[in-house]
Computed example of a mutant assay.
Amino acid sequence: MTSRRDNRTLIRKGAALIAAVLLAATTLSACTKTDDEATTLESLREKGTVTVAFANEAPYSFEKDGDVTGGTIALHREVFKRLGVPNLKGVKTDWGGLIPGLNAKRYDLVSAGMSITPERCGQAAFSVPEINYTTALMVKPGNPMNLSNMDSVKKSGAKLAAMTGAIEADYAKELSIPNTMLVKDQQSGIDAVNSGRADVFALTAVSLKYAKDNTPGLNVEVTKPFIAVINGKEQNPAGATVFRKQDTSLRDAYNAEVKKILSDPAEYMRILGPFGFTKENIPDPSLTTEQLCSGK
């Protein structure tokens, strides 16, 4: 026969179990709410710091002398300073991990001049176009395979290096270029050509020119810039700042401020000019994020 003491013990244990289950459910609910909660300008102002991801691709965003710098970093420092967020912190991330890390809330936005594409628009939200750019090829001295664009790479059978997740890797896939070597970052692509493991490295023209001009002893050549043609259509890539889809108010506040810089060529050049960007990199005002997201 069960005693009253045993009954009281069972009741206490049952109550403790129920309390533990309720606490776990509450904690899980709180965590889920935090993960889904939008990052707002107000929350960044309270912290005083915006945290950005960068892929260490010069001259967009890269490390130098222990600090993060570059054209997009300078742009973001300026915009967020105007928005009342005085500090910027960088988190170095492989290119292919930029958007996944953003959606995991490891940082507030991506500062990498990332091209706006339909696939990426399905994963994240983009600002207005900020940087218009062309493609170039880094090749061995003398350009022995006479490479000039992506089609010439395919026809020559050259071994191509391209960054994982970068638009040049997409070009290679669309054109079915064989022998494509995917590398994690800009320096790995440069090293692949320099060491002979790859014949050519495709990247934005401004990136390759900056690397050539600012790396003493780098024994390579950079071809003239070109616009890639895929399935008979000229590509018109434009880079932008990347936000999480739920952070629409933060993106809208950012857009309102960055548009002032984009409409003022002198101000644009003051901020991005020191990193090799020119007025030609300012996107046409008629080019919209919506157009690029739709693939038109």
Rank of each mutant, 00 (worst) to 15 (best):
M1W: 04
M1Y: 08
D6I: 03
R12Y: 12
I18E: 00
A19W: 02
T26H: 09
T27E: 07
A30F: 11
T32D: 10
T32C: 03
E37F: 00
S43M: 11
R45Y: 06
R45D: 03
R45K: 15
T49R: 07
F54A: 04
F54V: 01
E57I: 15
E63V: 13
K64S: 14
V68A: 14
G70S: 11
G71H: 04
T72R: 06
T72C: 02
L88V: 14
L88G: 02
K89L: 09
G90C: 07
G97S: 14
L98V: 02
I99Y: 03
R106N: 12
Y107M: 01
L109C: 04
A112D: 07
M114T: 14
S115R: 13
S115K: 10
I116H: 10
A125Y: 01
P129Y: 07
P129C: 06
N132C: 00
T135D: 13
L137Q: 08
V139S: 05
G157K: 09
L160K: 07
A166D: 14
I167V: 13
Y171R: 05
A172C: 04
K173I: 00
I177Q: 11
N179I: 01
N179R: 15
T180P: 05
T180I: 03
M181Y: 05
K184V: 13
Q186H: 13
Q186D: 12
S188M: 10
I190S: 06
A192F: 04
S195Y: 01
G196P: 09
T204A: 13
T215S: 13
T215N: 12
G217D: 14
L218V: 04
T223K: 13
F226I: 07
I227W: 03
E234Q: 13
A240E: 05
T241P: 03
V242I: 14
V242N: 06
K245I: 11
R251T: 01
R251N: 06
N255M: 02
E257R: 05
V258H: 09
V258E: 07
I261S: 10
L262T: 10
L262W: 10
E267I: 00
Y268W: 07
L272Q: 07
G273E: 03
N281K: 09
D284Y: 11
S286E: 10
T289L: 02
E290D: 14
S294M: 05
K296L: 08
